[in-house]
Computed example of a mutant assay.
Amino acid sequence: MAPRANWKGHLRLSLVSCPIALYPATTDREKIRLNLLDKSTGHRIRMQKVDADTGEPVDPGDIVRGYKTAEGYVEITEEDLDAIEIESTRTLDITRFVPRDEIDDLYNVRPYYVVPDGDAGRQAFAVIREAIRARGMVALGRVVIATREHIVALEPRGKGLLATLLRYPYEVRDEAEYFDDIPDEPIPQDMIDLATHIIDTMKGAFEPDSFEDRYETALRELIARKEAGDTTLPARPKAPTKVVNLMDALRRSVEAQGGPPARKSPPRRSAAKKPRRAGPARRKAS
C-alpha cells in the first residue's frame, strides 16, 4: 500500500508552476512498538485526558489550544489559525538557489520525496528539476506542513526531487556553548599516526544495506523466546575495559585491525650532564 501524501499543492519557479505531492522519504513503521498493559488483567491501558487541577476527565469536544502567558492562558481557536493562513500553505515557492555544501547538516530536519501530482504538470516539473540539476545548486523555498511553515531545500534525485525540511536559526544551538570549554590537548604526532592507520584499515564504501538495528533484532528474539515460554534473560554484553594507557590502546588497536605490530618508540635518553667548571679562584684580601 502506497503511503499517503503529507502535502499537495504547487511548485513554483517564477511564473512556471506545476502540481506536486510530498511523500515522507523515511519511515519507522517497521520498528517494534510496545503497548502499555494492566499487569493484573493483561488488557491494554487507554490514556485519558483529565483536567490538571480537578483531575476530572475532559470531553474531547471541550479541549482547545492555548498559549501560556504571565496572566494565564490565551485560547487559540481553529478559526484563529485559519485566519493566519499564508501563501505557502498551497504553494511551494522557490525563492533562492544556494550551493549544497553551504547548508550545514545541523539545519536538516526530515526528507520528503517530491513527485508530480497528475499528468498536467509533468513537463513543467521535469523542466524545473533539470534546470536545478544543470546548475548543480539547491533550491530554497517555503512550505506549510501541519500548520507550520518550513524552509525547504530541493535537489534533484533520480526522476523526482528530494525536499529536506530545514530548521530556523533559533532552533540551532550555538556550538560555542559546548565546545569552548574543551581544553586544548597536546597530541604527540606518533599517536595521530597510529590513529590514522586504524582509520585506513577500516575504510570502505557506504553500504546502508549492511546496517543492522541490533536492538530491534534482539528485541524480536526476546519476544519470540517469551512467546515460546522461555523466560530466561539474555546475557548482558561485557562492559568495555577502561583505557589505562592511550598509546598502548592505540598500538593494540592497530594489531587488532590486522596491521603489523606497532613499534614502540625508544625511550628518550637524558643528555649526560657536563661537569661543572669551577670559576676562577678568588684571591684573599691581604
Results as ranks from 00 to 15, higher is better:
Trp7Asp: 03
Trp7Cys: 05
Gly9Asp: 02
Gly9Met: 07
Leu13His: 05
Leu15Arg: 07
Val16Cys: 05
Ala21Asn: 05
Leu22Gln: 03
Leu22Asp: 01
Leu22Ile: 04
Asp28Arg: 03
Arg29Asp: 11
Glu30Gly: 15
Asn35Leu: 01
Lys39Phe: 01
Lys39Trp: 04
Gln48Thr: 15
Asp53Ser: 02
Glu56Met: 15
Arg65Cys: 07
Gly66Cys: 00
Lys68Ile: 10
Glu71Asp: 15
Tyr73Ser: 12
Val74Asp: 09
Ile76Tyr: 06
Thr77Phe: 02
Ile84Gln: 12
Glu85Lys: 14
Thr95Gly: 02
Val98Glu: 11
Asp101Leu: 01
Glu102Ser: 12
Asp104Asn: 14
Asp105Cys: 02
Val109Asn: 06
Arg110Asn: 02
Pro111Tyr: 10
Tyr112Ile: 07
Tyr113Trp: 13
Val115Ser: 15
Asp117Lys: 01
Asp117Ala: 15
Gly121Pro: 09
Arg122Val: 07
Ala124Pro: 00
Val127His: 00
Val127Met: 15
Ile132Ala: 09
Met137Pro: 03
Val138Leu: 13
Leu140Gly: 03
Leu140Gln: 11
Gly141Arg: 00
Ile145Lys: 11
Ala146Asp: 15
Arg148Ser: 13
Arg148Pro: 12
Ile151Val: 15
Val152Ala: 11
Ala153Gln: 14
Arg157Lys: 09
Arg157Pro: 01
Lys159Leu: 06
Gly160Lys: 14
Arg167Tyr: 01
Pro169Trp: 02
Tyr170Ala: 12
Glu171Phe: 09
Glu171Gln: 15
Arg173Pro: 05
Glu177Trp: 08
Glu177Pro: 11
Tyr178Asn: 02
Phe179Lys: 01
Pro188Ile: 01
Pro188His: 09
Asp190Pro: 09
Asp190Tyr: 09
Met191Val: 12
Leu194Arg: 01
Ile198Cys: 08
Asp200Cys: 01
Asp200Arg: 06
Lys203Tyr: 00
Ala205Leu: 08
Glu212Gln: 09
Arg214Lys: 13
Arg220Ile: 14
Lys226His: 11
Thr231Ala: 11
Lys238Phe: 10
Ala239Gly: 13
Lys242Met: 06
Lys242Glu: 03
Val243Tyr: 00
Leu246His: 09
Arg251Lys: 15
Ala262Glu: 08
Arg263Phe: 01
Pro266His: 00
Arg268Ser: 11
Arg268His: 07
Ala272Cys: 00
Pro275Met: 03
Arg276His: 12
Arg276Asn: 04
Arg277Pro: 06
Lys284Arg: 14
